[in-house]
Amino acid sequence: MAAYAICMRDGQLLLSRSPAPDGGPPEWVLPGGGMEHGEDPHDTVVREVEEETGYRIEVTGLLGVNSSRRVVPRRFGRAVDHHGVRLLYEGRVTGGELRYEIGGSTDMAAWHDLDAVSALNRVRLVDVALRLWRERPASGRGQLVEE
């Protein structure tokens, strides 16, 4: 379980940058991350956004839920069947100052013009969240058709 925020301001989207797990180029991600044991998802997204960007946010809504399942190859020929459930919130920056996370899962945070996001090296969840933000489906289901 994880919780992420889509924060928009003046036509820009707040994103964090994460080193690629395979050593490839860094990827832009939504600020957010995994829930700690016993933590409420609302508290998770508030904590994670502040850790990764320096900003305090007010959660203004739940946009939806995204579920993913994939088999991930591991060392020694074993594979892990990973199922992730991600809650996607809308947030509004209420304080703090933009800064980079030190010693965490991201190394940079920045505002990006919304029309430039499609050109960024980004994780698929960014597109899922933007679709939810634009369409606001009553079901709250954040799936994209695989291409």
Rank of each mutant, 00 (worst) to 15 (best):
E50L: 01
S105R: 08
R69V: 12
Y100D: 14
G140Q: 06
R56N: 06
R17E: 14
Q143H: 09
L98F: 04
R69L: 04
S105C: 01
G24K: 12
V145G: 00
R122V: 01
G96Y: 10
R56T: 11
L132P: 05
D107G: 12
I57W: 07
R69M: 11
V85C: 04
P21F: 13
R74Q: 14
E90P: 05
A3N: 08
R56I: 03
R78P: 00
D107Q: 09
V117L: 02
A20H: 15
L63E: 09
R9H: 14
V123Q: 11
M35Y: 00
S118G: 04
H82K: 15
S118Y: 02
G77K: 07
D107V: 13
L30I: 09
E58Y: 00
P41W: 06
Y89C: 09
E27L: 15
G77L: 05
V46N: 06
A110V: 02
V128C: 01
I6W: 01
S105E: 11
V145M: 04
R86L: 10
Y89P: 04
E51N: 05
S18W: 07
E48A: 11
T106V: 15
R92C: 08
L114Q: 06
E51P: 00
H112E: 10
Y55V: 00
M1T: 12
E50W: 03
T44G: 07
P26C: 11
Y55T: 04
V65G: 02
L87I: 07
L120S: 03
R122F: 04
P137G: 05
G11I: 06
V145K: 03
L87W: 12
D115M: 04
G103K: 05
V72M: 14
G91K: 09
L13E: 11
E50S: 05
P25Y: 00
V46P: 00
E48N: 08
S16A: 15
E39A: 10
W28H: 07
E135I: 06
G140E: 10
D43T: 09
H82M: 14
L120W: 04
A5I: 04
V117R: 03
Y100F: 06
I6M: 12
E27M: 13
H37D: 15
